[in-house]
């Protein structure tokens, strides 16, 4: 009986570092995910809300169209990002890599800005 308890104790001691290693790896992954957050821009009343959003490089931004009509999100620089049509009730997500001024190509008076801190 005493031998069995000792054997079990040794097994637990051997498994502990292995389990710890797994848990550390998972934690790293979680830390990695949490370091890149997702921010939201709502498209409503013919405006990007907020009009200017400050994020870290690698963060994601999701635009949600809560308006009455279709919109787009288009980098004002040529060859920049472009969402294509975001229909009413739909959304579009992008990873922010650079600061940019953008607009809605359907409604050019609608303007927004991404600032990388």
């Amino acid at each position: 009986m005493k031998n069995k308890i000792t054997e079990l104790g040794i097994k637990v001691l051997l498994l502990f570092p292995i389990l710890s290693l797994f848990s550390c790896h998972s934690s790293d992954q979680q830390n990695g995910e949490s370091s890149h957050r997702t921010d939201t821009v709502v498209i409503q009343q013919m405006q990007f809300i907020p009009a200017s959003i400050t994020v870290k490089k690698g963060d994601s931004i999701v635009w949600i169209n809560k308006g009455m009509v279709d919109h787009t999100v288009k980098d004002e620089k040529s060859n920049g990002f472009y969402s294509d049509t975001i229909h009413v009730g739909q959304s579009w997500k992008m990873v922010a890599t650079d600061s940019a001024d953008y607009d809605c190509s359907i409604h050019p008076t609608m303007k927004g800005r991404i600032v990388i801190k």
Partner: peptide, 16 residues
């Protein structure tokens, strides 16, 4: 009330 901002945006676009 939701249509109003759409119309105002159209007016700004038309003036542009």
């Amino acid at each position: 009330q939701s249509v109003l901002p759409v119309l105002k945006s159209h007016l700004s676009h038309a003036e542009m």
